[in-house]
């Protein structure tokens, strides 16, 4: 499986945010987008997730499920956690597992997801009571509860402490080792062996 982005152009309003960007992510590979604020990292990830329309170029998941759209084969973790404060951590997780998994909830996968992000003690607590870091972990648990080949992570480490970052790094490592694909934008290095970096920058005013 291979995520192939060719000559991508993305406009927002009158501004061109991404101009002729090409890259590929192979199965078993994690690609980390680096660059200054406003370089378009979030835009690239949201475009691959299908949340932003392209102005030119193509995005394709080669060797993926031909019956499903690319966004339906990807997990999108954005800046917001998509948790309902009045539902417990487990209920939140079960909802997303059922919704993203087409109605099928694998109980074992839910347990594994809670375990992976050290959420078992919090499972029965409404998400509204959680701290920022705990909420972020509950959001990331979605990755494990429903298996999807492509992970799109936009600043996944926001408000996580060092121990939690290590938990995330371990899960990303396992996903990649199992032939998964990861496209991430992060300031904190996840310290993976198979991690590759892609610099997206801005042209200077003089250029």
């Amino acid at each position: 499986m291979r995520l192939s982005v060719k000559h991508l152009v993305v406009d927002r309003g009158a501004r061109r945010i991404v101009d002729d960007l090409s890259f590929a992510v192979e199965a078993g590979e994690a690609l980390v987008l680096v660059g200054p604020n406003g370089a378009g990292k979030t835009t690239v990830i949201r475009t691959v997730a299908g949340l932003i329309g392209v102005a030119g170029g193509s995005i394709a998941l080669e060797g993926g499920d031909a019956e499903r759209e690319l966004p339906a084969q990807a997990h999108y973790i954005g800046h917001l956690n998509a948790l309902k404060p009045s539902l417990t951590v487990e209920e939140n997780l079960r909802f997303w597992a059922a919704y993203l998994g087409g109605g099928v909830v694998d109980g074992a996968a839910i347990d594994a997801a809670l375990l992976a992000f050290d959420l078992e003690p919090l499972a029965m607590i409404p998400a509204g009571y959680l701290s920022a870091g705990q909420k972020r972990r509950a959001c990331l648990a979605r990755l494990i509860a429903t298996p999807r080949p492509l992970w799109l992570l936009d600043e996944p480490t926001v408000s996580l402490d060092a121990a939690s970052v290590a938990l995330l790094a371990k899960q990303v490592g396992q996903h990649v080792a199992g032939g998964g694909l990861v496209l991430a934008a992060t300031h904190i290095p996840l310290g993976l062996a198979s991690e590759r970096q892609l610099e997206i920058g801005m042209r200077s005013a003089a250029a």
């Binding site: 945010i17 101009d19 960007l21 890259f23 370089a39 997206i200 042209r203 200077s204 005013a205 250029a207």
Partner: peptide, 12 residues
Amino acid sequence: RARGVSAPAAAE
């Protein structure tokens, strides 16, 4: 132009 940036561009 005043901010010293033109349209952001990306390259591999």
